[in-house]
């Protein structure tokens, strides 16, 4: 990919769509490649806002150590768990063949 704030190419959009697991059509790639540079240019102003001394805020309300006790709570039944599945077999979720293994 090119450097930040310099825009975003059609190939970049295609790469990002791959990371995001969206099979964008050629027309969609054209469309987003034309549109995203303006959006990214607009949001790039955040780089001018704060220096290294400013903490990034990951949580708007600062709270630490929120834990639960190690105690069992009722599960879903397998029927409930599988009710929304596009396909299932042998009480398991049926998914198409998996190519790579991590």
């Amino acid at each position: 990919m090119s450097e930040p704030a310099k825009g975003i190419s059609r190939a970049d959009v295609s790469h990002l769509a791959g990371l995001a697991r969206i099979d964008l059509s050629e027309a969609e790639l054209d469309h987003f490649a034309a549109e995203l540079p303006a959006i990214l240019e607009h949001v790039a102003v955040v780089q001018q806002a704060a220096g290294d001394d400013v903490e990034a805020m990951s949580h708007p309300v600062p709270v630490n150590n929120v834990f639960r006790e190690d105690v069992v709570v009722p599960c879903l039944t397998p029927e409930e768990a599988l009710a929304g599945a596009p396909a299932s077999e042998q009480q398991r979720f049926l998914v198409p063949k998996i190519l790579g293994e991590d």
Binding site: P4, L16, A20, F32, A49, A50, A56, S58, P60
Partner: peptide, 24 residues
């Protein structure tokens, strides 16, 4: 797509990281 871009390696600090600083 925009979010994936903002979090991707090499861009995180410039985009997501900077945006979270704006919140501070």
């Amino acid at each position: 797509i925009v979010g994936t871009y903002a979090l991707s390696s090499g861009y995180y600090d410039a985009y997501y990281g900077s945006a979270q600083k704006v919140r501070t």
